[in-house]
């Protein structure tokens, strides 16, 4: 049996159990509608202009936040990982900032940036920064000194050692960090949209249908979309790793 079919068995069993639980009245169908209903609603979402606006807003913000987190996290990681003094000086503040839940920062960020898309982008960037940053720092310590020595023995300049030896060496770890950040960013975006009234986005879509309309079928349809998106992104990252970083053992930190 092809492995793709075997992988689908778990999903099918899950959907059947859900369907049975909902149909038999084990759970109230108003709160947890069966998948047959949810999936039909899900298909219908793509003809729903409000939903499409929300999705575009969330996905665009996601791309921006993840891009910013990578553009900030990698150079910052190189600096903190490469310069001992900077690492020592920054360690307290980094360890203080890292565990802060982004969602708790919503009121503060709204009062500074307003309630537009910039707020959720800022919060998602903040949350997505850490996996990229820490994986970069970690990867820098894992760069094989023998490779660096080899480059030095051929008088390769500092700059070309950075671009030609260090960056390729850390790439697998950084990609793993970005992959992790991708789901963190999505979670923070949807949460922020959910908790911030009068915005657009997938989180607001779920909030509106859930809290004011009590339409759990629409809520679950939106949730299925978010889940499916996260799943496809992850597959994309794994494929990118296989395609461009064949030489590296899979995985990395985090």
């Amino acid at each position: 049996m092809p492995s793709i079919l075997r992988k689908l068995i778990g999903l099918v069993v899950f959907l059947l159990l859900w369907e049975a639980a909902s149909r038999s009245g084990l759970v109230q169908a108003t709160y947890v509608p069966p998948p047959s209903v949810v999936l039909v609603k899900f298909a219908g979402l793509f003809g729903n202009p409000q939903f499409l606006t929300d999705v575009v807003s969330t996905l665009l913000s996601w791309v921006i936040a993840l891009g910013l987190a990578t553009l900030i996290g990698v150079p910052l990681g190189l600096l903190l990982g490469g310069v001992r003094l900077l690492r020592t000086v920054s360690s307290t503040i980094v360890e203080f900032l890292r565990p802060l839940p982004s969602v708790a920062l919503i009121p503060l960020v709204i009062s500074v940036l307003g309630s537009g898309a910039q707020t959720k982008i800022a919060l998602a960037t903040f949350a997505a920064l850490w996996p990229v940053l820490f994986n970069t720092i970690y990867a820098l310590h894992e760069v094989d000194p023998q490779l660096v020595d080899t480059a030095r023995s051929f008088r390769v300049s500092r700059l070309r050692r950075l671009t030609g030896v260090t960056l390729p060496s850390i790439a697998p770890f950084v990609l793993t960090g970005v992959r992790f950040s991708a789901s963190v960013a999505l979670i923070v975006l949807v949460s922020t949209e959910f908790l911030t009234g009068g915005t657009i986005g997938l989180g607001q879509f779920v909030y509106t249908w859930g809290s004011s309309a009590g339409r759990m079928d629409m809520v679950l349809a939106g949730t299925v979309f978010a889940g499916l998106f996260g799943y496809l992104v992850n597959i994309g990252f794994v494929a990118a790793q296989r395609r461009w970083l064949v030489w590296a053992p899979a995985g990395g930190a985090m």
Binding site: Q146, F154, P168
Partner: peptide, 22 residues
């Protein structure tokens, strides 16, 4: 340790050429 002195992300030709670029 050749396995740690050749750059795994470069081809054989790329490895030989790398020092020559300077």
């Amino acid at each position: 340790d050749y396995s740690r002195s050749l750059f795994p992300w470069r081809t054989v030709a790329g490895n030989i050429e790398f020092p020559l670029r300077g």
